[in-house]
Amino acid sequence: MSVFIKHYRPCGLVSGFNNKIWRYNSTTADVATSKNEEDEEFRVLDILKKRDRQQRRVARRADVQPDRADRMAVDQNWGNVWPGPKSFHPSSVPLPLRQGYVPRGQAPPGKKANAELMKIPNFLHLTPPVIKAQCEALKPFCTEWPKLLNSEEAIEKHYPVEIISSDYCHASPSIRNPLARIVTLRIKLSTLNLDKHAKDKFIRLVGDRYDRETDLVTITADRCPVKKQNLDYVNYLLTACYHESWNVEEWEKDKTEDDMEYYDWDKNASKKSLVNWYLRTKNENRELTDEEYVAFDISEIPNGEEYKNAVSNYLNDGESEVTVKNYAKSVRKLLGLPEAKVVT
């Protein structure tokens, strides 16, 4: 039968394998005869059962056909051969693949009986022609993309609300997954129509759901059992927060300068001193009320705007090299002092 096998596997691999089998049989025969001789003299305790393991015969079938990869036409449609995702199988893939770790200077093991190739997920089912064909097949189900939504900015402008939810697909009798109920809503705060007070209140209402750096408000709901309910709930939350932030309560008027969450230069002593100083330099000696101080237009003071910004930044953004330097610069400009010389 060996001829037959050889004929069927033209790669010559089998004939080598055959030789090995023959050699193997003869060695086991030798072992058997020597064992008989040994038996008479001394019995050896064979803990690892090395002998038995050696003698186990490998039953091999003779009529195994060659790999179907050998018979594949060069111009075949690969999508027909490998239509869906599955683990690698050497006899169906007509590629001389090699994979695995070996010491330097050796070739990695071939594709047959190679666990390394089977472990990794392959994308043999998603070759470019297959993707193209599948896209063509799916086209009849697709509608045209709205023409005016031609850029990211346009999409963001017209569809500011983003809903994120997950669907799960797994092999089990149940198609339900508790994680699928979670719904997340994201929106840029700048797209909401809020004034200064409402924005402040909105941020206070949503708390840590607002990210100052990206300007995104993220609302996640998972308290209801079904996705639809959670979706309704996040929409409700957003609506409620929005309208609530526009409400002005009676007690909000009691807010004093001490309650301010940021430094408002117009209402602080810094402006008072600046105005006073300015008036004195013009030799006017007026007594101003608090409202007058606030309403005072500082654009008539040379370099006053710059000074205002420098002071506000210094107090709002915190003390840093830049803010301190800016402050120094604006004060020099305001007082007409020369630029600081950098001593090196």
């Binding site: 809903i163 939810s165 669907d167 797994h170 957003l238």
Partner: peptide
């Protein structure tokens, strides 16, 4: 257990910016 996780982005449109509650 979960072989595929899909994250669809659903955009619900806001008709005018001042009124969020009606999603067109």
């Amino acid at each position: 257990m979960y072989s595929n996780i899909i994250l669809p982005r659903q955009w619900s449109r806001i008709a005018c910016f001042c009124r969020l509650s009606t999603i067109e």
